[in-house]
């Protein structure tokens, strides 16, 4: 089981006011605890700043989400930013479907000891409790990089952009670089603060 926890409400209001995003909320599968009432309150407060809301389950299923997106084509086209309330997999799916947008995670995803999400997907979420996917083009450096590096690639990227640990695997940081370069947002890489994981978040979540 995963636990999704809404990020700091003030920060979400800042995203709403500053970026006028389209909002996805994934009300969740049985494996995910999803705080929908809390999200509804936040969205009510920021109502005037939204381009629209889509309530959807199994946002992690790419084909399903792709078709769902078609129904909201106009609203989505009207903004550069998307705000997603889901686990980390859902954020990554939306990021890949809407490569040219900045996709903000509205939730942090936590790990509950002994329970993993059960649906196999293209994307992995490490349930770190500190989702930064909006800074990395929707590609998670924890799961896309063999070392889980947060501040850029190591020296082990092969000439064809693969990881020296596994030649089948793309270097996650090259993917992040290419994605951000393609949308002209390399500034996100340059500006992002030094990131360090806070393991206390998941230790506490697991103990509860």
């Amino acid at each position: 089981m995963l636990i999704t926890k809404v990020k700091d409400h003030r920060k979400i209001q800042e995203i709403l006011k500053g970026y006028n995003p389209f909002v996805f909320k994934c009300f969740g599968c049985r494996e995910v605890h999803f705080p929908e009432e809390e999200i509804n309150e936040i969205l009510k407060e920021g109502q005037g700043h939204l381009k629209g809301i889509a309530r959807i389950d199994y946002l992690c299923r790419e084909e399903f989400t792709r078709r769902y997106l078609e129904a909201f084509e106009n609203e989505v086209r009207a903004t550069k930013s998307i705000l997603v309330f889901s686990c980390g997999v859902g954020v990554q799916v939306v990021s890949r479907l809407l490569e040219e947008k900045i996709v903000f995670p509205g939730c942090d995803t936590f790990y509950l000891n002994g329970f993993q999400g059960v649906t196999a997907q293209d994307f992995d979420c490490e349930q770190c409790g500190q989702c930064w996917l909006n800074l990395t083009g929707g590609i998670c450096p924890l799961t896309a990089c063999s070392k889980g590096l947060l501040n850029g690639p190591c020296g082990g990227t092969t000439k064809d952009g693969k990881c020296e640990v596994n030649s089948e695997m793309d270097c996650g940081w090259v993917l992040i670089y290419k994605r951000l370069q393609s949308i002209g947002r390399l500034d996100l890489l340059k500006k992002s603060a030094v990131n360090v994981r806070d393991y206390n978040l998941i230790i506490r979540a697991a103990v509860k």
Partner: peptide
């Protein structure tokens, strides 16, 4: 380097911090 490039493949790769942090 990652642990799998060395001689103790079974080790836990730590990488709690990285060069920048």
């Amino acid at each position: 380097d990652h642990t799998v490039l060395g001689d103790h493949l079974q080790a836990k790769p730590v990488f709690d911090l990285d060069s920048v942090s």
